[in-house]
């Protein structure tokens, strides 16, 4: 169609500010947000409390005490706090995103809003950014609570490098939430029914958490030859397994967090003896080296978020506005 090739005039960002502010206000004042926050507190309080209990006994002997709050596996609770977050952040993002677009259809507000001077771009992006901001607010609040509790119960302040690594962790957590928010929004663009959209997002979430590790393993096993003859072959298989695992955003998140919060982490894949040469086992990496280590993971998360957002954007542009 030649006419669709005609350039449209005016900025695609016209009106993005009001959309963003309204969505943010809606998110923050909604009961749903309250429920999600409660959810995080309930799931997070237990691991944090038990790690703190345990850490009090080792104060002074560990240089990264505050980071341990996140990563230590407490005796009473078998999941560290970051793992709980790995599980809960997607749920929160889905909770915020599953009805972003289709609820506008169902309330019949979409055509009225789009008849105001703004492009669909602004509506979608404004909603997405408001969702990200909401996630960020929740994560920062959580982070401050954890650090605050650490201050009170451990009785010593965090070191600068710990705070820096903690902030890095926040960024990774928000990017991870962004991926799931984009996925939830994608389904909310595709399906007019909010229930279907929520079900699909949750289904994908469960798939990545429960099924995907097994499937990835099964695929890798299928490639194992009768006899592994060389180290290269073995490494290749390892790499394949890892690459498959990394399709899941959860894997990227936990790897990135591992690199940030466990400064001793030197590699996120198999380690060759050649790489070990000259290394002092258990010695922490400097922050910039850790960042370098997790850079691909962070990029992967952000890229995933952008790809999924773009997909929903393309579909939304083509959608008919009539209900």
């Amino acid at each position: 169609m030649p006419r669709s090739a005609a350039r449209r005039e005016g900025s695609p960002f016209t009106g993005i500010g009001p959309v963003y502010l309204k969505e943010l206000a809606d998110n923050l004042s909604s009961i749903r947000m309250l429920v999600l926050t409660l959810f995080i507190i309930v799931f997070g309080a237990f691991p944090v409390a038990s790690s703190l209990q345990q850490l009090r006994t080792v104060v002074g002997s560990d240089a990264f005490l505050f980071l341990r709050i996140f990563t230590i596996e407490p005796e009473q609770v078998p999941i560290p706090f970051v793992q709980a977050l790995n599980f809960i952040i997607p749920l929160m993002a889905i909770g915020l995103g599953f009805d972003l677009v289709n609820s506008e259809f169902n309330r019949r507000t979409l055509s009225r809003v789009l008849s105001q001077p703004l492009y669909r771009d602004a509506l979608l992006l404004g909603k997405f950014l408001a969702g990200i901001t909401t996630l960020a607010v929740a994560m920062v609040a959580l982070w401050l609570i954890v650090f605050g509790a650490g201050l009170l119960l451990l009785g010593l302040p965090p070191r600068g490098v710990e705070v820096a690594r903690g902030i890095g962790f926040l960024v990774v957590a928000v990017a991870y939430g962004g991926v799931w928010l984009a996925i939830a929004m994608f389904f909310s663009v595709i399906f007019r029914s909010t229930a279907t959209s929520a079900l699909c997002s949750l289904g994908l979430w469960l798939f990545f958490f429960i099924l995907w590790p097994m499937i990835a393993q099964a695929i890798t096993m299928a490639f194992v030859p009768a006899e592994i003859t060389s180290l290269d072959q073995f490494m290749g298989l390892q790499q394949l397994g890892l690459a498959l695992q990394r399709v899941s955003p959860g894997t990227l998140f936990s790897e990135a967090v591992l690199g940030l919060l466990n400064p001793e982490t030197r590699t996120l894949g198999p380690m060759l003896p050649s790489q070990m040469r000259g290394a002092i086992m258990g010695a922490p990496l400097p922050l910039d080296q850790s960042l370098l280590l997790i850079w691909p993971q962070v990029t992967g998360l952000i890229a995933g978020m952008i790809v999924v957002f773009t997909a929903s954007y393309v579909i939304f542009q083509r959608e008919e506005v009539r209900a």
């Binding site: 005039e9 001077p117 703004l118 492009y119």
Partner: peptide
């Protein structure tokens, strides 16, 4: 088609329901 923002700034729309 090309200037929807200008049109929508000046036209009021009351959709069905």
């Amino acid at each position: 088609v090309r200037q929807p923002l200008e049109v929508k700034r000046r036209v009021g729309y009351l959709p069905d329901a």
